[in-house]
Design a protein around this nucleic acid. Structure first.
Length: 136
DNA sequence: GTTCTGACA
DNA sequence: TGTCAGAA
């Protein structure tokens, strides 16, 4: 339990998170706009990320690299909704279940996106998709 | 020095 | 996504 609290405790500014995740500030803020993450804020409106946020970002990064777009990630990742990840209000933390993607889910998602119109990017996705279908 | 928001090549 | 501006 105490571990949960520490995990959701906002600690580092975006600069640290950038190094930890290899994402640019632009991307991190962009993902926040799309509600993929909900970092806490300091009095000065600075973002403060928790370990949970960082893990979340790594998840997102992983999916992005697999060719999944924001919409797809939203479908796969658990809704952030509740103010569950601020360091201030740590009342009844929801069970952060294991949200590891099965290849089946990923394939379905990629296939779905392949069907959506998207000139230019299709070829790249096909390549990555075929890598999944075969290797890995 | 860092980060924030909004906007545009 | 990168990057610049103008303000905290």
């Amino acid at each position: 339990m105490a571990d949960e609290l520490r995990r959701n405790m906002a600690l580092f500014p975006i600069g640290i998170v950038m190094k930890l995740t290899d994402l640019t500030a632009r991307q991190i803020r962009y993902y926040e706009q799309h509600e993929l993450i909900v970092p806490a804020r300091t009095a000065g409106n600075q973002r403060l990320f928790s370990f949970n946020d960082v893990e979340r970002l790594l998840e997102i990064k992983s999916l992005i690299e697999k060719g999944v777009n924001i919409a797809g990630i939203k479908q796969v990742m658990n809704p952030v909704s509740k103010e569950s990840d601020d360091a201030t209000l740590v009342s009844e933390q929801s069970e952060v279940k294991r949200r590891e993607l099965s290849d089946q889910q990923l394939h379905r998602l990629l296939k779905q996106q392949l069907l959506e119109k998207r000139p230019g990017r299709t070829s790249m996705i096909e390549g990555q998709l075929s890598r999944f279908l075969n290797k890995r």
